[in-house]
Structures are given as C-alpha cells and as structure tokens.
C-alpha cells in the first residue's frame, strides 16, 4: 500500500517534470539566460506554497499519514560545501539541461541517450564519496 503511494507520487512528479517543460534542455538554457519567467515561475510557485505548507505542518504539529510526528532535519551548517558543490552542480545542470529528477523522467520519455548522463551522475556521486575527506566542507 505504501509502495503504491510512493509510486503514484513519482508518477505525478514525472508527468509534471515533462509537462511543465522543466525537463527540457531549452527551458534550462533560457532560464540561465534570464530570457523567460517560466522556470522562475515554477520554482517560485512551488516555493511559495512549500513555505506555507511547511510552516503549517510545524505550527500545528500536523502528524504524518502513519500517526507519527513529522520531523524536519535542518541542513548541516557550512558554507564552502554548499557554494562549491552548488557551482559544480550548476555547471553540469546548464550543460545537460537536466537535474537528477528530470534525468529519470527523460529516460521514460524516450531519450535513451540520457542514460549516458545518468552513468556520469553515478560516477560523479561515486567520485565525491571517494574524495570526500580531502574536500573543504
């Protein structure tokens, strides 16, 4: 039953990534050239609703579907890892025009070559895990 719920959430997410065009390389390119409001509108709306819903969950101590209290784990404090990691991520995002969610969606949408991007992303994740102790955080 729970598995079905997660599958359904994923399907809704995948359809939205495709239909919103957030999974399109062209939209990402246009966003980084500041020539369209579209992507900023998507992220801004998600964020505006998200800020309110997150606040309401905390304020009213809303319980999860399973009756447990909902935990919000704060991100670890730091500066370098977020800035450097963010810049590296941004370089890749702008080049391949897809962040991790859309990489999966595009595979389903019929672009097998995105598998090369996925293999690269897995290698990048592995590389980070291997070099982690040597990097400034």
């Amino acid at each position: 039953m729970k598995t079905l719920l997660y599958l359904l959430i994923g399907i809704i997410f995948g359809i939205t990534m495709y239909k919103s065009e957030a999974a399109s390389w062209f939209r990402i390119y246009e966003m980084f050239r500041f020539e369209s409001f579209h992507m900023y509108g998507i992220i801004g709306t998600a964020l505006a609703v998200g800020v309110v819903s997150t606040f309401l969950i905390k304020h009213y101590n809303i319980k999860s579907f399973y009756g447990s209290p909902i935990k919000f784990i704060p991100k670890e404090k730091g500066f370098k890892r977020y800035l450097f990691g963010g810049i590296i991520f941004g370089l890749g995002w702008a080049l391949v025009g897809a962040c991790p969610g859309p990489i999966f969606t595009l595979l389903g949408a019929g672009f097998p070559i995105v598998g090369v991007v996925l293999v690269g992303a897995l290698m990048g994740t592995f590389l980070y895990g291997s070099l982690r102790n040597k990097l400034p955080h």
Binding site: I43, A46, L47, G50, V51, S53, T54, K75, E76, R81, Y82, F84, G85, G86, I87, I88, F89, G90, L91, G92, W93, L95, V96, A98, C99, P100, G101, I103, I113, V114, V116, V117, L118, V119, G120, A121, L122, M123, G124, T125, F126, L127, Y128, G129, L135
Partner: peptide
C-alpha cells in the same frame, strides 16, 4: 553528456542536495 552528468552527480552530493532537496524543500 558524460561530464555534464559527472558534474551534476558530484556537485549534488558535495552540496548535499539538488534542485528538489535545496531549491524546493530546503528553501521551503
């Protein structure tokens, strides 16, 4: 495409999240 993906994977883990983890849920 491979190196673009490599940067996405490396950067996301280094920064501890990507668009969904930081730009949407983290900022929310």
């Amino acid at each position: 495409l491979f190196f673009g993906g490599l940067f996405v994977g490396f950067g996301a883990r280094y920064a501890g999240g990507c668009t969904s983890g930081h730009a949407i849920s983290g900022l929310s």
